[in-house]
Amino acid sequence: MDLALLRTFVTVHRAGSFTRAAALLGLSQPAVTSQIRSLERQLGRPLFLRQARGVIPTSIGDELAHKAAPHLDALLEITESGLDDASCLRTLHLAGPPEFTTERALPALTEPPVRDDHPLALRVSFGNAEEILEGLAAGHHDLAISTIRPRGALLTATVLCDEEHVLVAAPLWADRLGEDALRCNSAPALEGLPVIEVHESLPFVSRYWASVFDSRPKSSGTVIVPDLRAVLACVAAGAGLAVLPRYLCAPALKHGEIVSLHEPAVPPLRTYFLVARTGTLALPYIARAHELLLRAATGWC
């Protein structure tokens, strides 16, 4: 059986679409369709059921994929291993949210001794979770950091870390509220404060209110800026309250530039996933970056 046909078949199985598989393989869609039909003729059985939006594997298709995919991944690892030496600098295309990628992921991949022991060229893209996963599925990225766990067989996700969210403001707002208001731990006590957020929908504040106060925020955003680092700067300047990841605002809290307005018994958490296309972790340079990020994440809190 032709290995090229099997590779195309496994890619379609993982992608769930001839169109997406064609993009990943660098082939035209008719070429992918032709290869799958050729394989189906050889086996005498249909491998996929065509639908309006993609394909789903038949039971025979599933069985063949589960048998063939590990061996194809192993062959890919063997063929790539010869390229993984100091004389061949590979380029890793990484995508993720701008703040977390900048503050956490990039230092883990570039700081010495990692930089010296594991030479790696990097190309980094920023975006929201949906854009990032779409780009990864289309083959534009090698690894992605996402707050959404992807579905389907095309992408493989590993839990990277959890981040704690903190409700913060400048000290002047805490002074205006007073200790009694802060001690009551209720949403109404905070309703008069201006809100700083990354989007009009108030994603961070709404998630915090739902998790901690079991309610929805009544205020709209006073300052909307699509970068958490800019939100932190506005909070420190006294523009209002915000909900921020603790890793991002910990130095400002330590130096008294901002204060925590609320300390719930169970703080809200958000999970990050490290995502790759299924099978690509057989590539040494992707596997190495994946390992470095997971190792670094054990020290993140």
Score class of each variant (00 low, 15 high):
residue 255 H to C: 14
residue 220 S to T: 14
residue 226 P to S: 14
residue 197 E to G: 10
residue 246 R to Y: 07
residue 294 L to K: 02
residue 273 F to L: 09
residue 198 V to W: 01
residue 55 V to H: 02
residue 148 I to S: 12
residue 106 L to H: 07
residue 234 C to K: 07
residue 43 L to F: 06
residue 67 K to F: 13
residue 41 R to S: 13
residue 277 R to F: 06
residue 187 A to R: 01
residue 140 H to F: 11
residue 156 T to I: 04
residue 14 R to T: 02
residue 153 A to V: 09
residue 225 V to T: 07
residue 241 L to A: 04
residue 91 T to Y: 08
residue 183 R to H: 10
residue 168 V to E: 01
residue 261 L to H: 00
residue 234 C to S: 13
residue 124 V to T: 05
residue 69 A to G: 06
residue 80 E to L: 15
residue 124 V to L: 05
residue 23 A to F: 09
residue 169 A to W: 01
residue 63 E to D: 12
residue 230 A to Q: 12
residue 67 K to N: 10
residue 249 C to Y: 01
residue 120 L to E: 04
residue 66 H to K: 12
residue 170 A to N: 03
residue 165 H to A: 10
residue 78 I to Y: 15
residue 221 G to C: 08
residue 29 Q to G: 12
residue 230 A to T: 11
residue 122 L to W: 05
residue 258 I to C: 06
residue 228 L to F: 12
residue 301 C to K: 08
residue 163 E to R: 03
residue 6 L to T: 03
residue 27 L to I: 11
residue 105 A to V: 13
residue 298 T to E: 07
residue 139 G to Y: 05
residue 38 S to D: 13
residue 74 A to K: 10
residue 115 R to S: 09
residue 267 P to A: 04
residue 113 P to G: 03
residue 212 V to E: 02
residue 21 A to S: 03
residue 197 E to D: 15
residue 236 A to Q: 07
residue 87 S to H: 15
residue 144 A to F: 02
residue 69 A to S: 09
residue 116 D to P: 08
residue 297 A to G: 02
residue 113 P to M: 03
residue 260 S to V: 05
residue 298 T to Y: 11
residue 177 L to Y: 05
residue 169 A to M: 04
residue 295 R to C: 14
residue 45 R to F: 06
residue 23 A to V: 10
residue 161 C to F: 11
residue 145 I to F: 02
residue 181 A to D: 06
residue 225 V to R: 06
residue 82 G to A: 13
residue 216 R to M: 13
residue 155 L to I: 01
residue 243 V to S: 01
residue 272 Y to G: 06
residue 42 Q to T: 07
residue 280 T to V: 15
residue 93 H to W: 11
residue 231 V to C: 05
residue 184 C to Q: 14
residue 274 L to K: 01
residue 146 S to H: 06
residue 152 G to L: 03
residue 14 R to W: 04
residue 281 L to A: 02
residue 3 L to A: 14
residue 239 A to M: 09
residue 106 L to C: 14
residue 82 G to L: 15
residue 261 L to I: 02
residue 112 P to Y: 05
residue 146 S to M: 06
residue 143 L to S: 03
residue 69 A to R: 01
residue 70 P to Y: 05
residue 213 F to Q: 02
residue 176 R to E: 03
residue 13 H to D: 03
residue 221 G to E: 07
residue 292 L to Y: 04
residue 49 L to C: 09
residue 279 G to H: 04
residue 209 W to Y: 07
residue 196 I to K: 05
residue 282 A to P: 08
residue 279 G to S: 10
residue 86 A to W: 11
residue 135 G to S: 10
residue 137 A to V: 05
residue 208 Y to H: 00
residue 62 D to F: 04
residue 72 L to A: 08
residue 87 S to L: 14
residue 28 S to A: 12
residue 76 L to S: 11
residue 266 V to N: 12
residue 77 E to N: 15
residue 102 T to N: 13
residue 48 F to A: 00
residue 56 I to K: 08
residue 50 R to D: 00
residue 280 T to P: 13
residue 53 R to N: 08
residue 95 A to E: 06
residue 7 R to D: 03
residue 193 L to T: 00
residue 104 R to F: 13
residue 44 G to L: 03
residue 85 D to M: 15
residue 5 L to V: 05
residue 17 S to C: 10
residue 184 C to N: 13
residue 140 H to P: 13
residue 8 T to S: 08
residue 253 L to A: 07
residue 172 L to N: 14
residue 134 E to N: 15
